[in-house]
Design a protein around this nucleic acid. Structure first.
Lengths: 196, 196
DNA sequence: CTCTATATTGAATATATATTCAATGAAAAC
DNA sequence: GTTTTCATTGAATATATATTCAATATAGAG
């Protein structure tokens, strides 16, 4: 691959990373194309050489997120609690080294929930819905006694909303990471664990 | 009080409620003055009869929130777990009947965290920080064996981020409320409870 | 009923910002 | 070394939206 193309791809990547961070910190509308350009050390006009519009740039990010943030479908663990625990451990430790993971997690939720995101982009983000994806697992796990009693949807919703809240906080306050203030995965698993 | 003034106050209140809902659903910049006016069934120009600017309207909301969302300072319970449990119960049941409470809770977090909110407004919101306010209570409660072991700040942060995540979700999906999909307070208390 | 204050509107203005574009520079092709 | 392609810029344009304002309607005071 010629250097020219590599350069182009790197530049594109730089824009995506910069935009992701800003979109998460300030929201879609608050983030000006000029802000992104400045943060990426390039002229505003150049942004449009790489992406046709702000909306398309945002869409590119959401598409990346949709590919990467689904829950693994196969359970490599014999009990479903360990599945969630494994997911959290992986998520936290990986994100700690790759801050964009926090940002992406938050961006996807924003794209799903915030009115004012163009409908077609919302739909892409909707495909990734950990709450829905977990309901069946929780339901089955309840019968085996791993999860506490209660509406499976409410349990799933509570668990994932909590994770979401924590990811958001860490996304905007990375200082907490450096100080090792990360939650233990157990603390969160205990939201759904049956401790009878 | 003459009818004229009452009318004015009601109108002002209507604007505040409408703006609160929209600011939470779409964010500060995404919410146009025209949107608020339309949702409140009035002309855009009239908004400026009641508030000098969009920023001042937002500030008025944050000031209201700063007065209302601090944690009660006196513990009317003999054990600190019951304090948090009482707070959550009150919060959820009251918010269920008064949706603006969800919105206000979320708005305050937004104002605190989102860059792109004017600095002086951020500062007002910063005064309300449940995480900081709870650290000492948790620390003391750990010694008495009520709370699990671990960094008190991390525990407080985890608990409140979880609550935050849930409030956000409920603020944008009130349907969950109607379906009774609310979390049990126990599920959240178990994040911090010591179950040795 | 008349007058005054003020609530309300819709259009005008100012400003911010997304987007376009002509010009320039630099790298690759030949 | 010349030509061609494309990255890059900064200024120009278009558009959206906050804010202002002159005009009108309406409610209360006298």
């Amino acid at each position: 691959m010629p250097t020219r193309n590599e350069q182009k791809e790197q530049r594109r990547q730089l824009i995506l990373e910069t935009a992701l961070e800003l979109f998460v910190k300030k929201g879609y509308a608050e983030t000006k194309i000029g802000d992104i350009a400045e943060a990426a050390h390039m002229s505003t006009g150049l942004m449009f050489h790489y992406f046709d519009s702000k909306e398309q740039l945002y869409e590119a990010l959401v598409r990346m997120g949709a590919e990467g943030t689904n829950l693994p479908q196969k359970l490599p663990y014999d009990n479903p609690l360990a599945y969630f625990e494994g997911f959290l451990k992986t998520l936290f430790s990986y994100a700690k080294e790759n801050l964009w993971v926090f940002h992406m997690f938050v961006l996807m939720a924003q794209a799903r929930q915030s009115e004012g995101i163009p409908a077609q982009i919302r739909e892409i983000a909707m495909q990734v819905d950990q709450v829905e994806q977990s309901v069946k697992i929780i339901e089955a796990g309840q019968k085996q006694g791993y999860f506490r009693k209660g509406d499976p949807y409410a349990l799933s919703f509570t668990f994932w909303s909590s994770v979401q809240g924590i990811m958001e906080q860490l996304a905007v306050s990375p200082a907490l990471l450096e100080q090792g203030k990360l939650p233990e995965t157990d603390w969160l698993i205990d939201i759904i664990r049956n401790r009878a």
